[in-house]
Design a protein around this nucleic acid. Structure first.
Length: 513
RNA sequence: GGUCCGUUCGUCUAGGGGUUAGGACAGUAGAUUUUCAUUCUACCAACAGGGGUUCGAUUCCCCUACGGACUACCA
């Protein structure tokens, strides 16, 4: 068992976009698989046909790809255990449910939804704290344990609707060792007789996930903490199916909480929180109004996948060192499930932003230039790669997202249509205007094009006018760019070119007097 | 309500019977910068509470409080 090949799976259900908690679960699975030289599988758990959302599966595939999480086996990739979509594996589950019935660990139940409601209402009225279909209540229900054998057979033969339920023992301690939490013990009386096969012939999650994990030879089940309460049930299932010796090891990850700490992050949080909960933008339909909706995504908001992943990896895990910056390869090398923390983590917008700025600045100008070029193209502005690289190089220290380049660098392509009022009212005067005019004229007659050259020329010109450079500098920036802040002024001028700068200075003097 | 899980700076976390309880983000201040930003430096800031065990507990145990998850023919 310990020598077994490491095989982990990420098993989302296609009920909508993946949210960042799901992405983190996938990430940890992937990191462990790579770290231990194992395989990462992707299985789609679509046993609930009512909740199927078109496009969700593609979204999942695309999101994982964007994150750099590579699937070795599964939907979209294929593999020896295909199909990897549970709806397509439907015929495989029934035999295991039958096996459980044959061994006396499961039974047929014919109760209608109304009868179940009535049962719960009755128990509630009797002040039973936790109404459930269990070792006590099943004696009063219509199932193969209470009905005469021939009646059961007749019901089955007549095609009556039924489900198959697990016969959970009345009192038994179920324990298992969680890789993150240690021994977890639950009393079987807290578990109810879970439905294994639904009346539509589909297995429920509980049966399907055990059967598939067994058949797919999964070695580690790494999933969210919301599964912890049902883990003992799964242990029981492995036992009754005779698979306990190859049962995967469990690791239940701490939840990702909303920033205010009031509950787990969910898909329904959509855009309400002020930051995206989805990796990619999602175009959905409002469940109540039927209106189309758009939810923000990290990709579209301008986050770099490496920043997003680095941040996510640190939400619930840390390497034990003081290093904060990790590439995917470094994460793989350092990852261990034992260092995943037990307590839930809140989402921290500031930290993701910081990671993004870090990764943005680490990129070369050549890598960054396309972001600017794309935005320029959208605005019908022509620009060559060399110029874009130059702009990006002076801008990257001052933006948080690639999409900010266009907004911040606009003035390289468009002359200002307004001037920073504060600077104008404070610093603009006739001498300044004269100095700028003089500089414009000097620019028209110079062959200088470097930042240093333009700076020297400026100092010279201004001093000839009997002023100090410092008195004119701010107004020079405002006259040329319209704004009061920006990267090195003479570098900016050099990128703009002397003719353009001269023209803008003339305009400014004319406009501001 | 019941069952289970959890609790170190505002946030993510390190640590672990004796520490000035460490780092990062955010915040604040300063330095650099013609501006803003970057960068650098410094500062601020935490062991939920109560009982044990112990020479000594933030660390181990118990209780309480608080938070969360689960409690479907959903996953």
């Amino acid at each position: 068992m310990t020598e077994r090949e490491v095989r982990v799976r990420f098993a989302p259900s296609p009920t909508g976009p993946l949210h960042i908690g799901g992405v983190r679960t996938a990430l940890y699975n992937y990191l462990l698989a790579r770290k231990l030289g194992g395989k990462m599988l992707l299985r789609i758990e679509d046993t609930d046909q009512n909740r199927f959302v078109p496009g969700a599966e593609n979204y999942i595939l695309e999101a994982l790809a964007w994150c750099g999480i590579v699937i070795d086996e599964g939907v979209g990739t294929g593999g020896p255990h295909a199909p990897y979509r549970q709806s397509e594996r439907k015929p495989m589950y029934k035999q295991y449910a039958d096996q459980l019935i044959a061994s006396g660990h499961a039974y047929y139940a014919f109760d209608t939804p109304e009868e179940l409601d009535a049962m719960r209402a009755r128990l509630q009225a009797a002040k039973v704290p936790n109404p459930q279909y269990n070792s006590i209540t099943r004696a009063q229900m219509r199932n193969s344990l209470t009905l005469p054998e021939d009646e059961v057979k007749q019901l089955l033969d007549s095609g009556a609707q039924y489900v198959i339920r697990l016969k959970v023992p009345r009192k038994e301690e179920v324990r298992f060792q969680d890789l993150i939490r240690g021994w977890v013990v639950v009393h079987s009386s807290a578990i109810d007789d879970k439905v294994l096969m639904k009346s539509d012939g589909m297995p429920t999650y509980h049966l399907a996930n055990i059967v598939d994990d067994h058949l797919m030879e999964i070695s580690h089940v790494i999933r969210g903490e919301e599964w912890l309460p049902s883990a003992p049930l799964h242990v029981l299932l492995y036992r009754y199916l005779g698979w306990e010796s190859t049962m995967p090891q469990f690791a239940h990850l701490p939840l990702l909480l909303k920033p205010d700490g009031t509950g787990k992050l969910s898909k329904r949080d959509g855009d309400k929180l002020g930051f995206p909960v989805f990796p990619l933008e999602w175009h959905g339909i409002d469940g109540e109004t039927g209106e189309p909706t758009v939810s923000r995504g990290y990709r579209e908001d301008g986050y770099l996948p490496e920043a997003f992943i680095n941040f996510l990896a640190f939400l619930g895990w840390n390497p034990g060192s003081q290093q904060e910056i990790f590439s995917m390869d470094e994460l793989i090398a350092s990852f261990s499930i034992e260092r995943v923390s037990k307590s839930p983590a809140r989402f921290d917008q500031n930290k993701v932003k910081w990671y993004n700025e870090h990764y943005l600045r680490a990129k070369s100008d050549a890598e960054l230039a396309p972001y600017l070029l794309t935005a320029l193209a959208e605005h019908g502005i022509a620009c060559d790669q060399a110029k874009a690289e130059r702009i990006v190089s002076v801008m990257k220290e001052r933006v948080s997202f690639p999409k900010d380049f266009w907004q911040e660098a606009k003035y390289f392509f468009q002359a200002p249509d307004s001037y920073d009022e504060q600077v104008v009212s404070k610093k603009w005067n006739p001498q300044v205007a004269a100095a700028l005019t003089a500089y414009a004229e000097a620019l028209a007659g110079t062959a200088e094009s470097t930042a240093e050259g333009l700076k020297a020329l400026f100092n010279q010109t201004v001093e000839a006018q009997g002023m100090k450079p410092g008195q004119v500098l701010q107004t020079l920036r405002v006259a040329v760019t319209g704004g009061a802040a920006g990267p090195d002024l003479f570098e900016t001028l050099a990128i703009l070119g002397t003719a353009e700068v001269a023209a803008r200075l003339q305009t400014a003097v004319k406009t501001l007097g």
